[in-house]
Design a protein around this nucleic acid. Structure first.
Lengths: 205, 205
DNA sequence: ATTATCTATAGATCTATAGATAATGC
DNA sequence: ATTATCTATAGATCTATAGATAATGC
């Protein structure tokens, strides 16, 4: 299947996704999108009418991707510690596969928090279940005396803070310090271990 | 001293700072700056020639502020643990005083990493000294067997990750969940304790 | 006939400057 | 005289649409 096999409508969406992720909403023009998709600028508006519509499509898809990943907690580890370690590790690996997501989501949400509000409704039911599941697990372990007390919100916030930070700073650090891609991969691998270490230390007695 | 006492040149700078911090570079127009400063749009260019110049002024000042704070480590605590706790706590409090800094710096660096490069030179000598100071301290404690091994880079990165995350997410969370300012303050206070707890847990044997 | 694609352009901004006028300093 | 401030506008984008033409489906 060659590039021309994909419909132009879809190629436009792909081009938009790539450019929005790289440059953000304001810096991306419908002209750039058209050029990358291989069509005329007017066609972008023919299919998606407004730049905003097109952006929303991309943005919502990415939010869903993130949500789906956070929710796809694999509780297969038997030991509680293993479960948490696996959870944090999987989230980290997900970010490693999608390193442009954190800067993208943050920049756009900061410059336009309204976008979240419009999505909040669509994504509300899911998160609660996972929080409650984790909350129950934590309570159980705490009562057993197996870990030091912590709320599920705090634990998740800690995991997200530690995991996301490298991907927010990496592009900047890489450019500023002139790191090679191999350097970056190595640093990330090291960092991942340190993060898990830190999270588990917080839980241990 | 009334508002008119300040020179117009300065009022323009102040207006620019406020608007850039709130809306970022692209969304802020020299027209808005002029209006807020109380002058004509042309005057903005008369004093600072380009919007870019003006932005750089603000940006550099903020970077310096952040750097100065990170470097102003008060090592007064006698116990090593206290030193670290105080260090992290002071940084958190600094962010609490300047909550718009993290989103501002991140957004702008993400959308234009070149800005950092131009600053990197000016800020290079300082950071090294603090890193080396902490590195020496850590080594000492590790050799004493007082803490679990960790590098200064990892420790600082962990502290920054945990401290910055609340301020990056807070504006969004606040808008999305409709939290009051009091709610936010309370959450932050709680979060600060949890962060220090987490950092110390990582160091303890 | 309908749908896809293009050319051309109106209309909305926004930055930056030219040139006029007002205010200030010597 | 010099510096500060204003009015007006050129020039650069960029989005979105109108209207023409080409491709496709029945």
């Amino acid at each position: 299947m060659k590039a021309d096999d994909k419909t132009m409508e879809y190629q436009i969406l792909e081009a938009a996704e790539r450019l929005f992720l790289e440059q953000g909403y304001t810096k991306t023009t419908t002209g750039q999108i058209a050029k990358l998709a291989g069509c005329n600028q007017a066609l972008v508006h023919y299919y998606y009418r407004t730049k905003d519509n097109l952006f929303d499509r991309v943005f919502e898809e990415k939010i869903r991707l993130i949500a789906a990943n956070i929710l796809a907690v694999d509780s297969s580890g038997t030991l509680f510690e293993d479960k948490i370690a696996k959870m944090a590790g999987m989230h980290f690996d997900f970010l490693k596969e999608n390193p442009k997501l954190p800067p993208f989501i943050f920049s756009e949400l900061v410059s336009n928090p309204e976008r979240l509000r419009s999505l909040a409704g669509k994504l509300q039911q899911y998160p609660k279940s996972i929080f409650m599941q984790l909350e129950a697990l934590l309570k159980q372990e705490i009562e057993k005396g197996a870990i030091r007390p912590i709320s599920s919100v705090d634990l998740i916030f800690t995991i997200l803070s530690l995991n996301v930070a490298p991907f927010l700073t990496m592009p900047v650090l890489q450019k500023a310090m002139g790191l090679s891609d191999a350097d970056v991969r190595e640093m990330l691998e090291h960092r991942k271990e340190e993060i898990i270490e830190t999270i588990l230390a917080r839980l241990r007695k």
